[in-house]
Amino acid sequence: MRISVDVEACVGGGQCVLSAPDLFDQSDDDGTVILLGQPNADQEHEALQAERVCPAGAIVVDPR
């Protein structure tokens, strides 16, 4: 599984941080998404949830 984030599309809603706090953070400058790392096997559900709840479609999870 591989996460990619689109900082330009991000609207700083913070839903990803609530869903997967170990995988996502928000920039202090403009609140946009910071990807902290790729998910391990235990974090895959959280990663998919973050993708699902992102209001701006700024998180894409490639399951391969």
Binding site: V11, G12, G14, L18, D25, Q26, G31
Partner: peptide
């Protein structure tokens, strides 16, 4: 919209 919203987002992060 983005121009204005981005002025505020840093003040409303989860942290």
């Amino acid at each position: 919209h983005r121009h204005f919203r981005r002025m505020l987002t840093r003040h409303f992060t989860v942290k």
